[in-house]
Design a protein around this nucleic acid. Structure first.
Lengths: 304, 304
DNA sequence: GGTCATTTGTGTAACGTTACACATATACTG
DNA sequence: CAGTATATGTGTAACGTTACACAAATGACC
C-alpha cells in the first residue's frame, strides 16, 4: 500500500529495491542507463512506497532548469481572458509549451513593488512579457533575473528579444484605406499611458504615448493621413482603457456624439466591434455612411 | 556593475556585505529579523553583484513549497481559450492566485503516458483539474502526487475535493421549462465519452456517458422528461466534441435535417448559440417555433 | 586468451537555500 | 543592579536530487 504521511524519497526506494541511489535515479531519469532488471526492481519498489518520481524542486535545483516558461501579462491578467488578442497569445504559447513538454507559469504581476518581486521569485527558465508601457519596472525585473526574456509588442529594450509586427507600417497601410476621402476621420485607440486614462482629443502627438503598440499605430495612422493629404490635427482620437467591445461601444458613442465622423480606424477588432455597435444604435450604415477598420482578422471580423 | 555570466549566490552576497550567509538570507526572506544596517549592506552588495534574490528552486526545495498552483485542462488545453467556460474558469483561478501571491502553472497534459508523467514532475503545491471523464489517468496521477487535488465538475474520486454545481438538479429544472409541451424534443450535449465521438441518437442511457458533467445533465433532462410525462426514448440527443458554437451550429443542423424539432435543451450557451444559428439558417423563429435553452448565463446569452 | 569497447553499478560531492538552536548584545523591569 | 525579555548574528545540518568519475562485469574480436 502507498505510504501514509510523508512522501518517500529516492534513497528509500533504492534501499528497498536493493540498489544504489544513483541506480534508482537513473531508473527514472535515464532508463536506458540501467539494466531492465534493476529498472523493474526500482519501479516496483517505488510503486510499493507510493513514490511517484523525483521531487521537482530538488531536480530543478540540481539540474539548473525549472522546466517552465514564465508568462507575465501584467495588468492585463485581470481581463486577459476577455481579450481575444491576449487569449490567442496565451493559446499560442500554451501550444508551443505543450509540444516542448514545458509547463507554462502565469505570473500574477502588476506594478506594485511586491508584485514585481515575484518575477524574480518564479521558478522559470525564461520569461515572456505581454506588451506593456515603456520603462515598466516589470521589464527591468525580468531582465535582472538573467534569464532569457521575450517582449511581445514592446517596449524594445536591450537584452530582451522583441517579437511583434511592424505596427507603424501596418497602421499606415490600413489608415490609407479607411481614412481615404474622409471629411471627419477618427481613431479609436488603445491606452496611450500606463495610467490608461480615457482620452478624447484631436491630432495628438503619437510620441507622447508610452504604450509602444499604441504609439506605433498612431504614428502609422498619422503617416497615412499625411499620405492622403489629410491634416492630422483634424483627426479625432479616442482611447479605451481595455481591449473590450463593450467599452469601445461607449467610447465610440462619445466620439459620435461630440462631432461628425465618417471614418474610424480602430486598433483592434474588438474596438471596431464597439464602433459598429455604436453606429448601429444611431442607424448609420457601414460602410455606406462610415468606413470602419479593425485590426487582427479575428473570427469576429469575419462575421461582419 | 552586475556580474557577467553565472548568477551570484547568496553566500557571495553575504561575504561581500561582511555578514554570515544566514543574515543575508534573512535580509531577503524575513527582513524584520535583521537590523536595518545589515539589511542595507546586504541589499547593496546584492545590487552590486546583480543578485536578484534567492534561487526559486533552492528555496522551494528547502521550504517544501513550490509557490505555485497547478492547473490541468487536459485535452481541453488545445481550445481552452476558445471555450468561454474554460476561460472563465481560468480567469477565476488566476484572480485567486494573484490575491494569494501564488503563481499559476498550466500543465500541458493530455492522455499519453508521457504527458501524465508531467503531473508528477510539476513543481506545484496543489492541483486543480478541469472536468474530465471517469477514471481518467490524469486524475490518478494527480492523486498519486500526494498533493491536494480539486476536481472541477467531476469525476468524483476519493481523496480529491469536488467542486461544481448539482448539474442533475439544474438540468431537471431547465429541462422542465424548455421541454414543456414539446412534441419533438431534442438535446444538444457535450461529449459522452473520452473519445468525444459525435453521436446522434435517441433516448440514450445517461449512465453510459463517462463524462460526469454530461451524464449528470442528461440524467437531469431525463428526470425533466419524466416529470413532464414525456417519453425519454423520443428525445433526440446530439453531441458535440467541443464547447464551440461553430461545431454546435453544424450538429444542430444535422439534428434539424434528420427530423422535426420544436425544443432544444443545449448544455451550454455556446451550444445554444449554434442552435440559434442553425435555426436562423432555416428561418425558424425562437421561441415561437422552437424553444431553446442554454446553460451558463454567459454574456453571449444576455444579448439574445 | 588477451585486448578493447560497452554495459551496468556505485560513492562522492555538489546544487543554493533556510530551519533550528544557540550565542551575544541590548533594552526593559522593579 | 540583578534578572529577564528582546533584538540580532552565526554555524551546522539538512532539503532530495543528479553530474561526474571511476570500478566491475560482460561481450566482441582476432
Amino acid at each position: 500500500m502507498p505510504s501514509q504521511g510523508r512522501r518517500a524519497t529516492l534513497a528509500q526506494v533504492a534501499e528497498r529495491a536493493g540498489v544504489s541511489t544513483m541506480t534508482a535515479s537513473y531508473a527514472f531519469g535515464r532508463p536506458e542507463r540501467v539494466s531492465a532488471a534493476s529498472r523493474e526492481r526500482v519501479l516496483t519498489a517505488a510503486r510499493e512506497l507510493g513514490y511517484t518520481g523525483p521531487d521537482p524542486s530538488a531536480r530543478s535545483l540540481r539540474q539548473g532548469r525549472a522546466g517552465a516558461l514564465g508568462v507575465v501579462l501584467g495588468e492585463h491578467l485581470t481581463y486577459a481572458f476577455d481579450d481575444p488578442q491576449a487569449a490567442a497569445f496565451l493559446a499560442g504559447i500554451a501550444e508551443v509549451c505543450a509540444a516542448a513538454g514545458t509547463a507554462m507559469t502565469i505570473l500574477p504581476v502588476v506594478d506594485s513593488a511586491e508584485d514585481v518581486g515575484r518575477v524574480a521569485a518564479a521558478a522559470v527558465d525564461g520569461l515572456v512579457l505581454w506588451t506593456t508601457y515603456d520603462d515598466s519596472p516589470v521589464v527591468r525585473a525580468a531582465l535582472a533575473t538573467g534569464r532569457p526574456v521575450v517582449v511581445h509588442g514592446g517596449p524594445a529594450v536591450d537584452g530582451a528579444t522583441l517579437v511583434g509586427i511592424d505596427d507603424r507600417a501596418a497602421a499606415r497601410a490600413v489608415g490609407r484605406l479607411v481614412l481615404a476621402g474622409a471629411a471627419h476621420p477618427a481613431v479609436l485607440a488603445f491606452p496611450t499611458t500606463a495610467e490608461r486614462a480615457v482620452v478624447l482629443t484631436t491630432g495628438p502627438d503619437p510620441d507622447a504615448a508610452t504604450f509602444p503598440v499604441t504609439r506605433a499605430r498612431l504614428l502609422g495612422y498619422r503617416d497615412a493621413a499625411q499620405d492622403l493629404g489629410l491634416e492630422w490635427s483634424r483627426v479625432r482620437v479616442a482611447t479605451c482603457t481595455t481591449n473590450s467591445a463593450v467599452e469601445a461601444h461607449a467610447q465610440a458613442g462619445r466620439l459620435l456624439e461630440e462631432g461628425p465622423v465618417d471614418a474610424v480606424a480602430a486598433m483592434s477588432d474588438q474596438l471596431a466591434l464597439g464602433v459598429l455597435g455604436a453606429l448601429a444604435d444611431r442607424g448609420r450604415a457601414v460602410p455606406g455612411d462610415v468606413a470602419v477598420s479593425g485590426w487582427d482578422d479575428s473570427p469576429v471580423a469575419a462575421e461582419r
